[in-house]
């Protein structure tokens, strides 16, 4: 996939997730271009004929954004999937299952969970006025004391955010709520994964982009969510597919860099040193001997000052 799009494309699709932090430049004709801040839009825009079928995509791409914390350009590796067209219970379950399986794979034996919520239900309970985003921020922070201070807030929001996220408890509590009938049915289908699913209505995301099921994945030891996704029907419908729906998720593999890397205390397992009198063939023979053993080998004339090695092999004065 290409690295850039016309900036206009992102400006037009304001409801996409990326409204800020796009890195732009002008091409030789003076047209404003953008380094891709996201992959989903680029995938969606090429879709044709979605009626009555489901199209599925997988991507593994670099995207570019301005990092909010230090105002610097950032390259992010994004791996993800999208399903568009017919998105029924089967497709939703398949995507959620794939999310759980992906987390299982990258967690490398650590604990992991997928938090699941339904944004439409929360959104329907919100007042229509300006304070929506403020309330969503309180919900996302599980800030119950803050929510309780808002006059006239629908108390069901507080009940949902406070809900015990244990799978069985959650299903028991949600079962009789008409708006959540479909949500509960999907959870029940996925009950074989209940140890790794938390029903958590504090899971929020941009309500102008997402609707319906949304989810975030966490791995023990990684401080932020490593997987994020949900249903985003508005975007696909705004691109002319009036009867279509879409769902997808992205994995932020960069975040996994800091865990499970076996601490490498040495720069090289074997350091081989030689001098002018060492025959080249002898060096090659020596290297060959170790290379087959999956060892990290450094070959130098002198011992470099800052190189940490496990074992030294001197080929001088042969």
């Amino acid at each position: 996939m290409g690295k850039f799009e016309e900036y206009d494309f992102y400006a037009k699709n304001k409801q996409s997730l990326i409204s800020q932090g796009v890195i732009t430049f002008t091409d030789i004709n003076g047209k404003l271009m953008a380094l891709k801040p996201d992959v989903t839009l680029s995938i969606i825009k090429h879709l044709r004929d979605l009626d009555n079928i489901t199209q599925k995509f997988f991507y593994d791409e670099k995207v570019y954004r301005v990092s909010k914390n230090h105002n610097a350009f950032k390259e992010i590796t994004q791996v993800g999937i999208e399903a568009a067209g017919v998105v029924d219970d089967y497709v939703i379950c398949e995507v959620l299952e794939l999310a759980i399986k992906s987390l299982n794979l990258i967690s490398n034996g650590r604990n992991f969970v997928l938090d699941i919520s339904n944004l439409s239900v929360i959104k329907n309970l919100l007042p229509d006025d300006f304070s929506q985003s403020e309330i969503l921020n309180l919900i996302a922070a599980k800030n119950i004391h803050g929510l309780k201070k808002i006059d006239g807030l629908n108390q069901n929001i507080i009940k949902l955010v406070e809900l015990n996220s244990d799978f069985d408890d959650a299903i028991k509590n949600l079962k009789n709520i008409a708006e959540l009938e479909n949500f509960v049915r999907i959870l029940e289908i996925l009950s074989e994964y209940k140890n790794n699913i938390r029903v958590d209505f504090s899971t929020t995301n941009d309500p102008n982009y997402y609707n319906g099921i949304i989810f975030k994945g966490f791995v023990d030891g990684v401080p932020e969510c490593v997987l994020s996704g949900g249903q985003y029907d508005y975007l696909i419908q705004s691109m002319g597919h009036k009867n279509s729906k879409a769902i997808g998720f992205a994995l932020y593999v960069d975040l996994l860099e800091n865990i499970d890397n076996p601490k490498n205390d040495y720069d090289a397992d074997i350091l081989i040193t030689y001098d002018e009198n060492t025959p080249v063939n002898k060096i090659r023979e020596c290297v060959k001997k170790y290379r087959g053993q999956n060892l990290n080998i450094a070959v130098q004339k002198i011992i470099p000052e800052n190189l940490k090695y496990k074992e030294l092999v001197r080929l001088q004065n042969a």
Binding site: V113, F218, V219, D220, P223, C225
Partner: peptide
């Protein structure tokens, strides 16, 4: 609380 630690 950290969002990830809260779960684990």
């Amino acid at each position: 609380a950290n969002k990830s630690a809260y779960k684990f």
